[in-house]
């Protein structure tokens, strides 16, 4: 298990996980082997930024610029939750 999430880590979707669109609502869904996760708008924005190039600090900063009411702790806890669900992996920056 990843010991902790560092601000310099670069998160990306794990191989086999991709974002798609829900045909009913048009919202973003995470698709992975034998599972799906419906994302709200801010979670979808966080995922869009997890490209393996941006650091956690950059994801937090850029999402916070667009969604002013999203605090860094929310982004960090979402990232951590997705890591523990094996949907997101991080490269150590």
């Amino acid at each position: 298990m990843t010991p902790a999430l560092s601000l310099t880590d670069q998160p990306r979707l794990r191989r086999g996980v991709r974002a798609g669109a829900d045909p009913l609502s048009g919202e973003t869904v995470l698709l992975f082997p034998e599972g799906v996760l419906l994302l709200n708008e801010t979670a979808a924005a966080v995922i869009r930024h997890c490209d393996g190039c941006r650091s956690v600090a950059e994801v937090v900063q850029e999402v916070g610029t667009v969604y002013r009411d999203v605090v860094p702790e929310d982004v960090m806890s979402l990232l951590w939750e997705l890591i523990t669900q094996n949907l997101l992996v991080v490269d150590r920056g």
Binding site: P23, L24, V29, L31
Partner: peptide, 8 residues
């Protein structure tokens, strides 16, 4: 199936 909302 897609019309029903199936994702996988």
């Amino acid at each position: 199936a897609r019309g029903l909302g199936v994702l996988q």
